[in-house]
């Protein structure tokens, strides 16, 4: 079977696919740990596993999300845009691998009225 093809007997789950797309499209910023917690299944557990291991292949991704390879690629593209995934240098003609990276800025504190930060800096 040539890479990237979607044989007829591969499981397709339209509903899960569309829900995943909507959930990822709902935000624009980098995907934070608190975003993953509220994703629906099987997206949440797929991302959890990928984050813990640090990488995932397109084949595994499609299998875990129970969608065709081409649909998995659509989801992957969105996750790349939101900086959760990036294409790994281990990728080759047969397989694309992705590295995972959760992000999020901690919320900087506002300046207290006494400006204690400035005093501490001096």
């Amino acid at each position: 079977m040539p890479p990237g093809s979607s044989p007829k007997d591969e499981p397709v789950n339209q509903e899960q696919f569309e829900r995943a797309l909507l959930e990822i499209k709902a935000g624009k910023e980098d995907i934070r740990p608190s975003d993953v917690v509220i994703f629906s299944e099987p997206l949440r557990s797929t991302l959890n596993r990928a984050v813990r291991i640090g990488r995932i292949s397109l084949t595994e991704f499609a299998k875990e999300l129970e969608v065709e390879r081409e649909r998995a690629r659509e989801i992957v593209e969105l996750l790349i845009k939101r900086n959760l995934l990036r294409v790994s240098s281990f990728s080759n003609d047969k397989e694309t691998f992705y590295e995972t990276r959760l992000s999020a800025m901690t919320r900087p504190l506002g300046r207290p009225p006494s400006d204690i930060f400035k005093k501490l800096d001096d």
Binding site: S103, M105, F117, L120, D121
Partner: peptide, 17 residues
Amino acid sequence: GEIARILREGYDVGLLN
């Protein structure tokens, strides 16, 4: 001063990852 700076500026949690 260093604790204050990190609280004030925040940091990218991804760096911990």
